[in-house]
Design a protein around this nucleic acid. Structure first.
Lengths: 229, 229, 229, 229
DNA sequence: CATGAATGAGCGTTCATTCAT
DNA sequence: TATGAATGAACGCTCATTCAT
């Protein structure tokens, strides 16, 4: 279920027909940088180590990217693009409403499980108040299509009378993401303060089951008045 | 609703007279360090700036704490202690089950809203896989009492027939925390990818309403079979 | 044969009839400083550690001595005084010339063996070109009496026809000291470059035998012409 | 008689063209470090000042050497290599035994006279119990060849009946080295305690004459029994 | 007198970035 | 274009010394 990183990057969806060595090099650098940033956060990452990971000299980094900041922007764009392309592989239209929600929750969660870098990268960026993403064109509104499709799924459920009314799609989607993201992101401190090993075998699956139930019970909660409003 | 930092720190619950300057200085340093770590994360924080914030020389930091790491441990302990003492102010026993849950959700969420440092500090610590908290004695199992009280609240609701069965208290509590924490922590990147200003007026309250409903609908979801199991 | 350090210091030869606490404190500090300087050299020594060794606060050091430099002067004076008082215990007049030389060599060498601090302290001071000793009154010409007595011993040997003529007393005394001092001071590097463990059991005694023979063979080397010159 | 440092270092025996700047820079750093360590000892040396001496920035030191310790190792290796290569220039086989000894004594002594850094460097290293040299491969047993050649010289002298029997080569060599080394190393304190200016004109030559006589008289001291043993 | 908190210059080291080759 | 030597500001930390209590 987990795809290998090297082949997974959103960037290499681009046509590499002609041997564009420059393009390949860019990708190698982004991969190396992703790993380094993911293991250490933005401030903890070292350009030297990124260079070592690429197997190339440090000057190359600065030839392709002007600065550590620019490189971080590229890494963020790359991983967000990857997440979106994974999301697009999920065609919610094929599912019944409830099954569709289950799929969406599991799909989203599994991406985080399989790409722990995403969480570190995004947390780092939030620490810096999104100053890099703000400069990116390709990421803005990136999740609009997905939330639109989620809206359609909810609508279908509502029409079928199995989903409640008054659902704020974005709040819902943030909940779907957050219930898993927070757990995966904060496992280490949570394990300490609750004295329960959340890194243990089975903990991830247990979380997924709980959050799926939580969200679906919320959605299925059709009140008698709903139809009349 | 937000209390000022200076009076809010868990540490100064102790009677701080004028006698022992040392004790006072320790608190001043922890406060200064909390601010610096909160604004920049662990790696981004600078001991020089912490010293400037204290109004004292840099050497004094090392007179009280042996290293930046030790200081970070002290800051984490202080803020977790503060959170716990705030939690203890909330006597859930006084509430009907549903109202109790509402209180807990709001109380927890408001602490994060009023103490944005908490989120940055804890995210930083998770980036480092809890290596500092691991060394702390005072934080381990710190949230056991609270999850115990939450369990009692749920039990009361179940006895009254208004709450569902089969609730994993810790999973539930992580959801209660995570639904707010994730939103507050990730507002900046979420605002970009959803193209909705989550830092705008009203967004925080909206979030609280949504997550309260989500959790309560889950808990109230009494299935016919529940009583029979 | 080795006396304990604490009772051995030259300083406490002074009359401690009245309970002069100040004087006692001075000695305690000098002892502590001697140990610290001896283990780490001047630059490597830490005033904090000296204070810890005394069991008193750092301020005390600066009350009795104005600076690390002044304290080092006091330590040097103390240990040179100690060496001299040990030398004075050796009454060369009681010995036949050859036995006297043997005694002097062994006595001097054994002091170094039993007081390895002396070597580190003196090497440190030479690294700094004697800038501290230069300020000391009590040490200047301190070894004049001893070299005078050595001269008398040599004269007696010459009169008895068993010692050679033309002996420069100070050169000879420097040789007597240096043959042992150099070995003891440089054992660590010598062990490496010669690949022979000079810190092993027996190495010290072997050295003493060698250097005694060296010096005595030199002195006994009476040439036929000596008497005629 | 004293060669200038720049041409004298053991390291630049290698052909240093203009091609590899790196090699050149390494040597420049080692030279600068040698001077700084020699003037101040290990603890007294400052990496800032070493950088200033190289005319380059401080970071460059760490580009070539990982730490002050590693740099000190390199300096020690360099100067020991230099001493050995000087020693190898002395072909003892060409000399009659006694002349050979004279040459060896003078050669060794003159190296110290012309390279006062050697003494400070080695004293510093002994203060630290040879912890740097221990890590060096190139220095271990470095003086084995020389002591072997000294042994052959002594043997020839013994065969000719002009040198005594029972000579421990390493003890002898340590004496030859130590008689000069100690004088040169400790001139400053010795001048104070003997009240004789050992830094004055002529003092060095006088020392050499004395120590040569001392060693030769020891070696020449053929006892009647020697041949019979 | 004695304490130990506080100072501040300075230490060994790091690191994003530049630039000669 | 690619390399890696070089830069220099800044980092975490130290330490001899001072000073209020």
């Amino acid at each position: 279920m987990v795809e290998k990183r090297k082949r997974d990057s959103a960037s290499d969806a681009k046509p590499v027909g002609k041997k564009r060595d420059a393009e390949r090099t860019r990708l190698v650098i982004i991969q190396a940088a992703r790993e380094e940033f993911a293991e250490n956060g933005y401030d903890g990452a070292r350009t030297d180590r990124i260079a070592v990971r690429t197997g190339m000299s440090k000057g190359v980094l600065y030839h392709y990217f002007n600065s550590k900041d620019d490189l971080f922007v590229a890494v963020l764009e790359d991983i967000y693009l990857e997440l979106r392309s994974q999301n697009e592989a999920l065609v919610l239209d094929d599912f019944e409403p409830e099954a569709g929600i289950r799929e969406l929750i599991a799909h989203t969660y599994n991406y985080f499980v399989n790409h722990p870098e995403f969480i570190v990268l995004v947390n780092s960026e939030n620490l810096m108040k999104s100053q890099h993403l703000e400069r990116s064109q390709s990421v803005r509104s990136m999740f609009a299509p997905l939330s639109h499709r989620l809206g359609e799924l909810i609508s279908r459920g509502q029409e079928q009378g199995i989903f409640r009314a008054n659902v704020d799609i974005i709040e819902l989607y943030i909940s779907i993401v957050g219930l898993g993201y927070f757990f995966l992101s904060n496992r280490w401190t949570l394990s300490v303060v609750f004295n329960r090993d959340l890194l243990a075998e089975g903990a991830e699956e247990k979380r997924l089951a709980h959050m799926t139930e939580l969200v679906l019970d919320y959605l299925r909660n059709v009140k008698p008045m709903d139809g009349l409003k």
